[in-house]
């Protein structure tokens, strides 16, 4: 109420609500249309669909091509996520606790892959994978995905280490815990929300990655690549169904992230 009044009259407030609604619709409408289209019973994409059914979901979940690409993407993400978490957390600790002089330079280098044009990164990784003869294999995908997922872990864990009270670790050490056990019993449980956030980011980014992986694959297809190559020569409703499935996974994980954030920030554990 009071925030409403602080804008003065009610007219600008209504205008604001209208504007926000339009922006949200603009952002979400393509997704909503896609989701609705995925439930079509016809053999072509139309909006609104003349009839509804789960025909295309059945098709996707029985097609060997789709299932192979889905499982490849899931396997990559499942391997990348824990590796990304461990390596990123270690890097964040090193940046936070290491020599201050090196911090800014090193941090920039480690976070760069996140903001560098992925097409450039992809090209570089492609060259390297060819040289090492590891292209079109896990050995290429996993390090490639790690280069872009680790920065997210570094950022989320780094931010929480910055506000972490180091005296808690010192208290643990004075009570007989070595550095490692102090971090294990005290620091990690306290920064858990950041660890979870970093993991979820890593999973989503790996699962969704297209550009870099595209450079590295020849015969193997991750889900985004399968979707892209299917689109190249035909637009079938199965694309909409797969997209909706991908959307569901991502939305679920994001929701967990947001929910976690609320739970922890409202938690009495945090001072």
């Amino acid at each position: 109420m009071s925030s409403q009044e602080s804008y003065g009259s009610r007219l600008p407030y209504k205008f604001l609500v209208g504007l926000v609604t339009i922006v949200i619709l603009f952002l979400e409408a393509p997704l909503i249309i896609l989701v609705i289209q995925s439930f079509t019973a016809e053999s072509y994409l139309a909006f609104p669909p003349p009839s509804y059914g789960i025909r295309w979901y059945k098709e996707v979940l029985t097609s060997e091509d789709w299932l192979n690409s889905i499982s490849l993407s899931l396997i990559i993400a499942a391997v990348v996520t824990p590796l990304s978490l461990v390596l990123g957390t270690m890097a964040a600790f090193a940046l936070d606790r290491g020599p201050k002089k090196l911090k800014h330079g090193l941090q920039t280098i480690m976070i760069a892959p996140m903001v560098l044009p992925h097409i450039v990164l992809g090209l570089g990784l492609f060259k390297m994978a060819l040289q090492l003869d590891i292209d079109d294999s896990m050995l290429a995908y996993i390090p490639a995905h790690l280069t872009i997922t680790i920065p997210f872990v570094i950022i989320s864990v780094g931010a929480s280490l910055q506000t972490f009270e180091v005296s808690l670790e010192e208290a643990a050490r004075s009570l007989g815990a070595s550095r490692f056990w102090a971090v294990w019993y005290i620091t990690l449980p306290i920064i858990r929300p950041a660890l979870i956030a970093g993991s979820i980011f890593s999973f989503i980014i790996s699962f969704d990655e297209f550009i870099i992986t595209f450079f590295l694959t020849t015969f193997q297809r991750t889900l985004p690549i399968e979707m892209f190559s299917t689109l190249m020569y035909q637009v079938k409703p199965s694309i909409a169904a797969v997209s909706t499935l991908t959307l569901a996974v991502t939305a679920f994980l994001t929701a967990m992230l947001i929910l976690r954030g609320q739970v922890t920030s409202g938690d009495k554990v945090i001072k």
Binding site: E170, A172, S174, G176, I270
Partner: peptide
């Protein structure tokens, strides 16, 4: 000798109680 191998009891200004 590192801190964890000394038997000292340390009390900090901010108490440093483990919040979890």
């Amino acid at each position: 000798v590192p801190p964890h191998q000394r038997t000292v009891g340390l009390v900090f200004q901010n108490y440093a109680l483990f919040p979890h």
